[in-house]
Amino acid sequence: MMEKAVRTGREMTRGQAALFDGIMFLLFASFSVAMIYVFVNDYGKAQDEALRSGYILAYVQQAGKVIFFTQVKTLKDVANPVGLPNAGLEGCWKDPEFPYAAASCIPGTVARGYPYSDLADPLKGCASLSKFDLSTVSDLLKKDLGDGTDESFSCLDDQFGNPSSQSPGTTQFCTVHDNAGWRDIPRVPGKMALRCVMKELMKPLQTAGFKYFADFEREQSAGSSIPQKIFNINDPDSFRITNHWEADEGNWYSCDNVTSKTPPSLEYPFGGGGIDNVLSTSLPFRVNKGNTLDETMNFVLRVCIWSTKVSNR
Protein backbone atom coordinates (compact mmCIF):
# COMPACT_ATOMS: atom_id res chain seq x y z
CA MET A 1 0.00 0.00 0.00
CA MET A 2 2.78 2.38 1.01
CA GLU A 3 4.81 1.47 -2.08
CA LYS A 4 1.81 2.17 -4.31
CA ALA A 5 1.31 5.60 -2.79
CA VAL A 6 4.96 6.54 -3.28
CA ARG A 7 4.86 5.29 -6.86
CA THR A 8 1.70 7.31 -7.61
CA GLY A 9 3.36 10.44 -6.20
CA ARG A 10 6.37 9.99 -8.43
CA GLU A 11 4.09 9.49 -11.46
CA MET A 12 2.24 12.75 -10.65
CA THR A 13 5.53 14.61 -10.41
CA ARG A 14 6.59 13.47 -13.88
CA GLY A 15 3.16 14.35 -15.28
CA GLN A 16 3.30 17.83 -13.73
CA ALA A 17 6.77 18.38 -15.13
CA ALA A 18 5.60 17.48 -18.61
CA LEU A 19 2.56 19.71 -18.22
CA PHE A 20 4.81 22.53 -17.07
CA ASP A 21 6.88 22.16 -20.24
CA GLY A 22 3.74 22.28 -22.35
CA ILE A 23 2.41 25.36 -20.58
CA MET A 24 5.75 27.11 -20.96
CA PHE A 25 5.62 26.34 -24.67
CA LEU A 26 2.09 27.76 -24.80
CA LEU A 27 3.27 30.88 -23.00
CA PHE A 28 6.12 31.39 -25.45
CA ALA A 29 3.71 30.83 -28.32
CA SER A 30 1.28 33.37 -26.83
CA PHE A 31 4.06 35.91 -26.44
CA SER A 32 5.10 35.40 -30.07
CA VAL A 33 1.49 35.76 -31.16
CA ALA A 34 1.19 39.03 -29.24
CA MET A 35 4.33 40.33 -30.93
CA ILE A 36 2.97 39.37 -34.33
CA TYR A 37 -0.30 41.18 -33.65
CA VAL A 38 1.59 44.33 -32.61
CA PHE A 39 3.66 44.17 -35.78
CA VAL A 40 0.65 43.55 -38.01
CA ASN A 41 -1.29 46.36 -36.36
CA ASP A 42 1.40 48.95 -37.10
CA TYR A 43 2.41 47.60 -40.48
CA GLY A 44 1.92 50.11 -43.29
CA LYS A 45 0.48 52.89 -41.13
CA ALA A 46 3.37 55.26 -41.78
CA GLN A 47 3.24 54.57 -45.50
CA ASP A 48 -0.50 55.06 -45.55
CA GLU A 49 -0.14 58.34 -43.69
CA ALA A 50 2.53 59.52 -46.14
CA LEU A 51 0.35 58.59 -49.12
CA ARG A 52 -2.64 60.43 -47.66
CA SER A 53 -0.53 63.52 -47.04
CA GLY A 54 0.76 63.27 -50.60
CA TYR A 55 -2.82 63.16 -51.86
CA ILE A 56 -3.91 66.15 -49.78
CA LEU A 57 -0.91 68.20 -50.88
CA ALA A 58 -1.51 67.29 -54.52
CA TYR A 59 -5.12 68.38 -54.08
CA VAL A 60 -4.20 71.75 -52.57
CA GLN A 61 -1.51 72.38 -55.19
CA GLN A 62 -4.03 71.60 -57.90
CA ALA A 63 -6.51 74.03 -56.32
CA GLY A 64 -3.81 76.71 -56.35
CA LYS A 65 -3.14 76.12 -60.04
CA VAL A 66 -6.80 76.08 -61.07
CA ILE A 67 -7.25 79.75 -60.06
CA PHE A 68 -5.03 80.74 -62.97
CA PHE A 69 -7.56 79.33 -65.46
CA THR A 70 -10.99 79.73 -63.89
CA GLN A 71 -13.00 82.63 -65.29
CA VAL A 72 -14.71 84.56 -62.55
CA LYS A 73 -18.03 84.82 -64.33
CA THR A 74 -18.54 81.09 -63.71
CA LEU A 75 -18.43 81.75 -59.97
CA LYS A 76 -21.41 84.07 -59.76
CA ASP A 77 -23.77 81.33 -58.52
CA VAL A 78 -21.55 79.51 -56.05
CA ALA A 79 -22.87 81.21 -52.94
CA ASN A 80 -26.45 81.39 -54.11
CA PRO A 81 -27.17 78.74 -56.74
CA VAL A 82 -30.51 79.93 -58.06
CA GLY A 83 -32.98 77.16 -58.81
CA LEU A 84 -31.06 74.45 -56.96
CA PRO A 85 -32.03 72.62 -53.77
CA ASN A 86 -29.25 74.42 -51.90
CA ALA A 87 -30.25 77.88 -53.07
CA GLY A 88 -29.65 80.27 -50.24
CA LEU A 89 -28.04 77.66 -48.04
CA GLU A 90 -24.59 77.65 -49.61
CA GLY A 91 -23.68 80.95 -48.01
CA CYS A 92 -25.11 79.68 -44.76
CA TRP A 93 -22.61 76.87 -44.22
CA LYS A 94 -21.97 76.98 -40.50
CA ASP A 95 -18.53 76.24 -39.14
CA PRO A 96 -19.15 73.21 -36.90
CA GLU A 97 -16.32 74.34 -34.63
CA PHE A 98 -18.01 77.66 -33.83
CA PRO A 99 -18.39 77.32 -30.06
CA TYR A 100 -21.08 79.91 -29.44
CA ALA A 101 -24.78 79.79 -30.09
CA ALA A 102 -24.99 80.93 -33.69
CA ALA A 103 -27.74 83.20 -34.88
CA SER A 104 -29.89 81.95 -37.71
CA CYS A 105 -28.37 82.76 -41.07
CA ILE A 106 -30.39 84.76 -43.54
CA PRO A 107 -29.04 84.33 -47.09
CA GLY A 108 -27.25 87.42 -48.30
CA THR A 109 -26.57 88.83 -44.84
CA VAL A 110 -23.54 88.32 -42.63
CA ALA A 111 -23.67 86.30 -39.41
CA ARG A 112 -21.10 85.05 -36.91
CA GLY A 113 -20.06 81.42 -37.33
CA TYR A 114 -20.86 81.42 -41.05
CA PRO A 115 -17.56 82.11 -42.87
CA TYR A 116 -19.25 82.33 -46.29
CA SER A 117 -22.25 84.39 -45.29
CA ASP A 118 -21.05 87.58 -47.02
CA LEU A 119 -20.40 85.72 -50.30
CA ALA A 120 -24.14 85.56 -50.96
CA ASP A 121 -24.44 89.35 -50.95
CA PRO A 122 -26.02 90.12 -54.35
CA LEU A 123 -24.06 93.37 -54.80
CA LYS A 124 -20.64 92.71 -53.32
CA GLY A 125 -20.56 88.91 -53.11
CA CYS A 126 -19.77 86.28 -55.72
CA ALA A 127 -22.67 87.48 -57.88
CA SER A 128 -20.74 90.70 -58.52
CA LEU A 129 -18.11 88.71 -60.42
CA SER A 130 -20.44 88.28 -63.39
CA LYS A 131 -19.38 91.74 -64.61
CA PHE A 132 -15.86 90.56 -65.35
CA ASP A 133 -16.55 88.60 -68.46
CA LEU A 134 -13.07 87.60 -69.53
CA SER A 135 -11.03 87.79 -66.35
CA THR A 136 -9.70 84.79 -64.50
CA VAL A 137 -9.37 84.66 -60.72
CA SER A 138 -5.64 85.30 -60.95
CA ASP A 139 -6.20 88.26 -63.29
CA LEU A 140 -8.36 89.99 -60.70
CA LEU A 141 -6.04 89.02 -57.87
CA LYS A 142 -3.02 90.46 -59.63
CA LYS A 143 -4.86 93.70 -60.31
CA ASP A 144 -6.14 93.83 -56.75
CA LEU A 145 -2.68 93.24 -55.29
CA GLY A 146 -0.94 95.33 -57.93
CA ASP A 147 -2.14 98.68 -56.63
CA GLY A 148 0.34 98.38 -53.78
CA THR A 149 3.37 100.61 -53.77
CA ASP A 150 5.23 98.52 -51.23
CA GLU A 151 5.02 94.76 -51.13
CA SER A 152 5.32 94.79 -47.36
CA PHE A 153 1.73 95.97 -47.13
CA SER A 154 -1.43 94.50 -48.47
CA CYS A 155 -3.71 96.21 -50.91
CA LEU A 156 -5.77 93.04 -51.23
CA ASP A 157 -9.00 94.89 -50.63
CA ASP A 158 -11.22 94.31 -53.68
CA GLN A 159 -10.41 97.72 -55.17
CA PHE A 160 -7.69 99.33 -57.24
CA GLY A 161 -6.15 102.15 -55.26
CA ASN A 162 -7.47 104.58 -52.71
CA PRO A 163 -8.85 108.09 -52.76
CA SER A 164 -6.49 110.88 -51.83
CA SER A 165 -8.47 111.41 -48.64
CA GLN A 166 -7.50 107.95 -47.35
CA SER A 167 -6.41 108.28 -43.79
CA PRO A 168 -2.95 106.93 -42.98
CA GLY A 169 -2.76 103.24 -42.22
CA THR A 170 -1.61 100.14 -43.99
CA THR A 171 -3.58 101.10 -47.09
CA GLN A 172 -1.65 104.36 -47.47
CA PHE A 173 0.80 102.28 -49.47
CA CYS A 174 -1.82 101.58 -52.12
CA THR A 175 -1.96 103.67 -55.28
CA VAL A 176 -3.67 106.98 -54.60
CA HIS A 177 -6.14 108.47 -57.06
CA ASP A 178 -5.84 112.23 -56.83
CA ASN A 179 -9.02 114.21 -56.35
CA ALA A 180 -11.07 111.04 -56.14
CA GLY A 181 -13.63 109.93 -53.56
CA TRP A 182 -14.43 106.37 -52.49
CA ARG A 183 -17.16 106.13 -55.11
CA ASP A 184 -14.64 106.85 -57.88
CA ILE A 185 -12.31 104.01 -56.93
CA PRO A 186 -12.47 101.10 -59.39
CA ARG A 187 -13.75 97.92 -57.80
CA VAL A 188 -11.49 94.96 -58.55
CA PRO A 189 -12.79 92.05 -56.43
CA GLY A 190 -9.70 89.86 -56.52
CA LYS A 191 -9.95 88.76 -52.93
CA MET A 192 -13.67 88.08 -53.34
CA ALA A 193 -12.94 85.98 -56.45
CA LEU A 194 -10.34 83.96 -54.58
CA ARG A 195 -12.73 83.37 -51.68
CA CYS A 196 -15.50 82.29 -54.07
CA VAL A 197 -13.29 79.89 -56.01
CA MET A 198 -11.68 78.44 -52.88
CA LYS A 199 -15.14 77.75 -51.49
CA GLU A 200 -15.86 75.60 -54.53
CA LEU A 201 -12.44 74.03 -54.91
CA MET A 202 -12.18 73.02 -51.26
CA LYS A 203 -15.70 71.67 -51.01
CA PRO A 204 -14.70 67.96 -51.07
CA LEU A 205 -12.05 68.45 -48.39
CA GLN A 206 -14.35 70.66 -46.33
CA THR A 207 -16.97 67.91 -46.44
CA ALA A 208 -14.29 65.50 -45.19
CA GLY A 209 -13.62 67.75 -42.19
CA PHE A 210 -10.71 69.87 -43.37
CA LYS A 211 -10.16 73.58 -42.76
CA TYR A 212 -8.07 75.84 -44.99
CA PHE A 213 -6.47 79.26 -44.80
CA ALA A 214 -4.78 81.15 -47.63
CA ASP A 215 -2.45 84.13 -47.39
CA PHE A 216 0.10 86.05 -49.42
CA GLU A 217 3.66 86.53 -48.29
CA ARG A 218 6.73 88.16 -49.74
CA GLU A 219 8.73 85.81 -51.94
CA GLN A 220 12.09 87.21 -50.85
CA SER A 221 11.28 86.95 -47.19
CA ALA A 222 9.67 83.61 -46.40
CA GLY A 223 7.35 83.62 -43.44
CA SER A 224 6.55 87.34 -43.64
CA SER A 225 2.92 87.44 -44.61
CA ILE A 226 1.42 90.72 -45.62
CA PRO A 227 -1.02 92.18 -43.08
CA GLN A 228 -4.77 92.10 -43.45
CA LYS A 229 -7.50 94.32 -42.11
CA ILE A 230 -8.81 93.99 -38.58
CA PHE A 231 -11.93 91.86 -38.78
CA ASN A 232 -15.25 93.61 -38.85
CA ILE A 233 -18.23 91.47 -39.68
CA ASN A 234 -19.86 94.34 -41.56
CA ASP A 235 -16.80 94.88 -43.75
CA PRO A 236 -16.59 92.19 -46.46
CA ASP A 237 -12.99 93.20 -47.22
CA SER A 238 -11.93 92.10 -43.75
CA PHE A 239 -13.01 88.47 -44.17
CA ARG A 240 -10.14 86.03 -44.54
CA ILE A 241 -9.70 83.46 -47.30
CA THR A 242 -10.73 80.60 -45.06
CA ASN A 243 -13.58 78.42 -43.83
CA HIS A 244 -12.47 78.73 -40.21
CA TRP A 245 -14.43 81.18 -38.03
CA GLU A 246 -11.50 81.75 -35.65
CA ALA A 247 -9.23 82.83 -38.50
CA ASP A 248 -11.73 85.58 -39.36
CA GLU A 249 -12.61 86.81 -35.91
CA GLY A 250 -9.14 86.19 -34.52
CA ASN A 251 -7.55 88.52 -37.11
CA TRP A 252 -5.22 85.83 -38.45
CA TYR A 253 -3.29 86.91 -41.52
CA SER A 254 -0.78 84.12 -41.89
CA CYS A 255 -0.53 80.34 -41.86
CA ASP A 256 1.81 80.91 -38.96
CA ASN A 257 -1.22 81.95 -36.90
CA VAL A 258 -2.66 78.49 -37.54
CA THR A 259 0.26 76.71 -35.92
CA SER A 260 1.35 79.20 -33.27
CA LYS A 261 0.25 78.72 -29.68
CA THR A 262 0.26 82.37 -28.68
CA PRO A 263 -2.23 83.36 -25.97
CA PRO A 264 -5.07 85.79 -26.70
CA SER A 265 -3.95 89.40 -27.08
CA LEU A 266 -5.29 92.72 -28.30
CA GLU A 267 -4.00 91.95 -31.80
CA TYR A 268 -5.26 88.34 -31.83
CA PRO A 269 -8.39 88.11 -29.66
CA PHE A 270 -8.38 84.31 -29.73
CA GLY A 271 -4.60 83.83 -29.85
CA GLY A 272 -2.97 81.38 -32.20
CA GLY A 273 -4.64 78.24 -33.42
CA GLY A 274 -2.06 75.90 -31.90
CA ILE A 275 -2.87 73.32 -34.55
CA ASP A 276 -0.18 70.71 -35.13
CA ASN A 277 -1.30 68.64 -38.11
CA VAL A 278 -0.99 71.38 -40.73
CA LEU A 279 0.03 70.83 -44.35
CA SER A 280 0.86 73.79 -46.56
CA THR A 281 1.83 74.50 -50.12
CA SER A 282 3.03 77.65 -51.87
CA LEU A 283 2.83 79.02 -55.38
CA PRO A 284 4.82 81.93 -56.77
CA PHE A 285 2.56 84.89 -57.51
CA ARG A 286 4.28 87.79 -59.26
CA VAL A 287 2.38 90.99 -59.76
CA ASN A 288 3.09 94.06 -61.87
CA LYS A 289 3.27 97.10 -59.66
CA GLY A 290 0.49 99.60 -60.40
CA ASN A 291 0.13 100.25 -64.12
CA THR A 292 3.75 99.49 -64.91
CA LEU A 293 5.08 96.49 -66.78
CA ASP A 294 8.72 96.79 -65.79
CA GLU A 295 8.39 96.58 -62.03
CA THR A 296 7.10 93.54 -60.20
CA MET A 297 6.16 92.64 -56.67
CA ASN A 298 7.00 89.07 -55.86
CA PHE A 299 4.44 87.36 -53.68
CA VAL A 300 3.80 83.75 -52.75
CA LEU A 301 0.30 82.39 -52.41
CA ARG A 302 0.36 79.99 -49.49
CA VAL A 303 -2.49 77.64 -48.67
CA CYS A 304 -2.44 75.66 -45.45
CA ILE A 305 -4.86 72.93 -44.54
CA TRP A 306 -5.60 70.91 -41.44
CA SER A 307 -8.15 68.38 -40.32
CA THR A 308 -10.72 68.96 -37.64
CA LYS A 309 -12.31 66.39 -35.41
CA VAL A 310 -15.78 67.62 -36.16
CA SER A 311 -17.74 66.17 -39.04
CA ASN A 312 -18.89 68.84 -41.48
CA ARG A 313 -21.66 66.87 -43.07
Binding site: R14, G15, Q16, A18, L19, D21, G22, I23, F25, L26, F28, A29, S30, S32, V33
Partner: peptide
Amino acid sequence: GDDIPSIFPIVAGVLLF
Protein backbone atom coordinates in the same frame (compact mmCIF):
# COMPACT_ATOMS: atom_id res chain seq x y z
CA GLY B 1 1.88 8.07 -20.94
CA ASP B 2 4.61 10.34 -19.62
CA ASP B 3 4.10 13.00 -22.33
CA ILE B 4 0.31 12.94 -22.67
CA PRO B 5 -0.22 15.90 -20.26
CA SER B 6 2.08 18.14 -22.25
CA ILE B 7 0.65 17.26 -25.64
CA PHE B 8 -2.47 19.40 -25.23
CA PRO B 9 -0.76 22.76 -24.46
CA ILE B 10 1.89 22.05 -27.10
CA VAL B 11 -0.72 21.34 -29.75
CA ALA B 12 -2.69 24.42 -28.63
CA GLY B 13 0.48 26.54 -28.85
CA VAL B 14 1.35 25.24 -32.31
CA LEU B 15 -2.21 25.80 -33.56
CA LEU B 16 -2.30 29.31 -32.08
CA PHE B 17 1.03 30.23 -33.61
